[in-house]
Simulated scan of single mutants.
Amino acid sequence: MQRFASVIRLRPEKEAEYRRLHADVWPGVRAALKRANIGNYSIFLRDGLLFSYLEYTGDDYAADTAAIAADPTTRQWWEVTDPCQQPLDSAADGEWWAPAEEVFHLD
């Protein structure tokens, strides 16, 4: 199992909408994540920053995340959630959620 974390800014005027959307994530989006071997997935909010954490149990993360990106329902989901988000200034070109480096873990 691999752990992944990432960060993005939440647009303050979109917080209520983002919370409403995530209170009832579309079943097709949930299914796409599970098909891609992603579990124990959480998004946290603090001071305008969204922090995501997930656990990956597959053997080809690049292929599995590409399958998520190709999923039509997930693409529609991103059309409604992306306007709520703003990449960090430190994000690489074309990077949406910026990966966070794990500096400590306790089992």
Rank of each mutant, 00 (worst) to 15 (best):
M1V: 14
Q2I: 11
R3G: 07
F4V: 08
F4G: 08
F4Q: 04
S6P: 06
V7I: 08
V7E: 01
I8A: 04
R9G: 14
L10R: 08
L10H: 09
P12Q: 13
P12R: 09
P12M: 11
P12A: 09
E13P: 05
E15G: 02
E15W: 01
A16M: 11
E17Q: 10
Y18H: 04
R19E: 10
R19L: 07
R20G: 11
L21S: 00
H22W: 08
H22A: 01
P27R: 10
P27N: 08
P27Q: 01
R30Y: 14
A31R: 10
A31P: 12
L33Q: 07
A36K: 04
N37A: 14
I38L: 12
I38C: 15
N40A: 14
N40C: 14
N40T: 11
I43S: 02
R46Q: 04
D47M: 10
D47E: 11
D47W: 02
L49V: 02
L49M: 02
F51T: 00
S52W: 06
Y53E: 03
L54R: 11
L54Y: 11
Y56F: 12
T57M: 14
T57S: 13
G58V: 00
G58W: 03
D60C: 04
D60W: 06
A62P: 15
A63M: 06
A63H: 04
A63F: 03
A63G: 08
T65R: 15
T65D: 09
A66P: 15
A67L: 15
I68L: 08
A69P: 06
A70N: 08
D71I: 04
P72A: 01
W78V: 10
W78A: 13
P83E: 14
Q85C: 02
Q85G: 13
P87Y: 05
P87V: 03
P87H: 11
L88N: 04
D89N: 00
A91G: 01
A91T: 02
A91Q: 08
A92I: 05
D93G: 13
D93T: 10
G94R: 02
G94N: 00
W97V: 00
A98K: 06
P99M: 01
A100I: 04
A100D: 03
A100F: 10
E101V: 15
F104I: 13
H105R: 13
D107V: 08
D107K: 07
